[in-house]
Simulated assay, not measured.
Amino acid sequence: MQKYEYIKQPKLEATVYKDSYNQRLRVDGFNGNTGRLWEYLMDEAVSHRFEKILIKARFNQVSPLMEKGFVMEGGVNGYFSGDRAFFMSRFLTDDRRNSSYWKEEDEILRAVQKLDKKAVDGTGLITVATVEHANDLAELYQEVFKLYPVPLHDPDYVKESMKNGTIFVCIEENGKIISAASAEVSSSNQNAELTDCATRPSHRKGGYMKHLLRRLENELIQQNIFCAYTIARALSFGMNAAFHQLGYRYRGRLANNCIIFDKMEDMNIWERDLSEQ
């Protein structure tokens, strides 16, 4: 089960993403009484055996959430139409709280941040994908990812994402998509998450991803979206290096955030203000 639910109660409004696949609850924003929200989330956690709750909170909501046992794992400065979101997490099991790779991920991050930043354009043989590309995109994601947090292996899911405003860009060779990425746009919050980055193993040395990401940024600027962020596998030197070299800044790490690649993984947050270009 993966579904959004809009909660409206006396003294509480919230947008909640119920994600049984990743065994978590995610609140993408709320207004109102923190205690009421906490009661609702705990009822859901017990009913569905969720192991982690992640809330994207505004500044004035941080202290009340800390009183409920939440810890700050990071944030995105421009998430709420230019205002900062604090990523507040509550872990409901010991296994979900403890990471086996934290020291290794710190070493990867340190090595990445030593790299020089590079000038990259978003031109070249890049296509903004349409629903006609859905089958080919799903096939790409099937090859690259054994496991993924959302069902990108399903062409219908890809089509639905496009209809909801997600922008996919891709590079084709001999009529076959070899690399792709997307921007999941939130018009209400004026931000976009750069995600779904994949390159076929046979083409990994081509350096395609930086060009795809830059093209996505150009598409977002045309829509007056200036807050771009991503949540990248903390164990992936290549993906973290790509965002660092494109000018993104590290904003924290989400422990045991989602199932991706082959297991439950920690994810690094990176952000860039596109208005600074």
Rank of each mutant, 00 (worst) to 15 (best):
M1G: 12
K3H: 14
K3A: 02
Y4E: 03
L12E: 02
E13K: 13
V16A: 01
K18H: 11
K18W: 04
Y21F: 15
N22F: 06
R24F: 03
T34H: 01
T34L: 00
R36W: 01
R36A: 15
R36N: 02
W38Q: 15
E39A: 13
D43H: 12
V46S: 13
F50Y: 15
I55V: 15
I55C: 08
F59K: 15
Q61A: 12
P64K: 00
L65F: 03
E67D: 13
K68C: 11
M72P: 12
E73L: 11
E73F: 09
G74H: 06
N77D: 14
F80D: 09
F80I: 00
D83T: 06
R84I: 03
A85V: 08
F86H: 12
F86W: 13
D94Q: 10
D94R: 12
D95R: 14
S99A: 07
Y101L: 12
E105R: 04
E107C: 10
I108V: 13
L109N: 11
V112L: 06
Q113V: 03
K114F: 09
D121T: 14
G124P: 05
L125N: 15
T127K: 14
A129Y: 10
A129E: 05
T130Q: 07
D136N: 14
Y141N: 09
V144M: 03
V144Y: 08
P149F: 10
P149L: 08
P151F: 09
E160T: 12
S161K: 14
G165N: 05
E172Y: 04
E173H: 11
I178A: 05
A181F: 07
A181H: 03
Q190P: 03
T195N: 04
D196W: 07
R200C: 00
R200D: 05
K205L: 04
G206A: 09
L212W: 05
L213K: 12
R214E: 08
R215I: 00
N224I: 01
C227N: 12
T230W: 00
A234F: 01
S236Q: 11
S236I: 06
N240F: 10
L246F: 09
L246Y: 06
Y248S: 01
Y248K: 02
R249L: 13
L254H: 02
I260N: 05
D262R: 11
D262S: 13
K263E: 14
M264C: 13
D266P: 09
D266H: 09
M267A: 02
N268F: 02
N268C: 12
D273P: 05
L274C: 08
S275T: 03
Q277P: 00
